[in-house]
Simulated assay, not measured.
Amino acid sequence: MNTAVLLACAMLLDAALGEPDWLWSRLRHPAVLLGDAVRFLDQRLNNGVQKRLKGVAATTVLALGAWLIGYGLSALGPVVEILCCATLLAQKSLVQHVSDVATALRQSLPDARRTVARIVSRDTSEMDGPRVARAAIESAAENLSDGVIAPAFWFLLGGLPGLLLYKAINTADSMIGYRNERYAEFGWSAARLDDLLNLVPARLTGLMIALLANTQSQWHEIVMDAKRHVSPNAGWPEAAMARALGVALAGPRSYHGQIRHLAWVNEDARKEIGAQEIARAMKILWQVWALTLGLVMVGIATSLLW
């Protein structure tokens, strides 16, 4: 079956069902299993000398293992491929998690801090309302790219093997891709490969947001903001989302009690934002999803005609 057809079915299934608790409370989610694999390699290899070389070996094992597992699963037929792809897409769960922050923010600031702490790694205990809203919107933009668009992109290019390889490396980056004493060397290859795999999807996500929000005339400013971002990829969807909403994102934040003075995105725009702006961001997430599905359907129609 055409890979685009499989992807369209998986996107619709994910949008309809998301990640049902009744299933994943009984089974280990594939993302959890990937995390277990990363943790195992970290514990076994991240020690002694030549940590960068060991990290390269770990990344290679993860990538090759994920590819082979994906190849084996794809041989089981299109139903298995659709189910696996839908499981590894994150549209509905992303919208739900970020929407929960907006709901909590309408109720009380302590509730909002606890809720946003589930989706960001920065310190949340001292956040005010606008900082909570910015954190939620930034998470929405970044995860739209690496949780929806990038998986769809790599599934189209490489089928289930390509998707599983991407998810394995993205998971590894989220766990060991830090520039700290423990992971600066061991996590180097995972972080660099994740940067490479997200290079095109991040920019596609930013472009789609800009087109849907009719802010393509500000593309130069979006590019400039993206280049000032600490991440080579996350800045693209964040900068586009900031211009789409007419708000400022990023800026200083605290990690482990230490303030990091990161650059603002769309610095001169409104900084006093709240639940309303989060809700508007959620609409953009669904619009980008719909545009992606539409492009996939066009690809299906084109392949049928030719």
Rank of each mutant, 00 (worst) to 15 (best):
R260A: 05
V296P: 04
N46T: 05
T103P: 01
A172M: 10
N233R: 04
Q258K: 13
V200M: 15
G158A: 07
T59E: 05
V200D: 01
A58N: 07
V49P: 09
G70L: 00
R118L: 15
A248T: 04
A191L: 08
N2A: 12
R28A: 14
D146Y: 11
F40A: 13
R280V: 05
E277I: 01
A250R: 01
A213R: 04
V223F: 13
L94C: 06
I222D: 06
W22Q: 11
I222N: 03
V101M: 08
G35T: 05
H97C: 02
N46W: 06
L88A: 02
G72C: 07
T205S: 15
A75N: 09
A184S: 12
S139R: 07
L83R: 06
Q50N: 13
P78Q: 05
L144E: 09
G77I: 08
L160F: 03
E185L: 15
A15Y: 11
A202R: 06
S121T: 10
V223D: 09
V223Q: 15
R243M: 02
K167M: 05
G70T: 01
A58K: 02
L33A: 12
L207P: 00
F153D: 00
Y166F: 14
W306A: 15
P201W: 10
G274R: 08
A275M: 06
R131M: 14
L157M: 14
L144N: 04
A281K: 03
R134D: 01
L262M: 12
V116Q: 03
R253Q: 07
A168H: 08
V296E: 04
R118A: 12
P237E: 04
G235S: 06
A112P: 07
V265P: 05
S189Q: 12
I82Q: 07
L6D: 00
C9Q: 10
Y183L: 08
L83W: 05
S125A: 15
G158F: 11
L160P: 06
P20W: 13
A150W: 10
L6E: 00
R280H: 09
V38N: 02
E142R: 02
D195C: 06
L62H: 07
E221F: 11
E126V: 14
A191P: 09
F40W: 15
G257R: 07
M297W: 13
W264R: 00
L291A: 14
G299A: 08
I69P: 05
R182P: 10
I259D: 05
P237H: 04
S217R: 14
A184K: 15
D268K: 09
G129N: 12
K92I: 01
T292R: 09
A210K: 10
A301V: 13
R134H: 02
L45E: 08
D111L: 15
V200A: 12
A117V: 01
T87Q: 08
E142T: 02
L164N: 07
V296N: 02
I259E: 11
L157W: 06
H261S: 11
D111A: 15
R134G: 08
A240M: 04
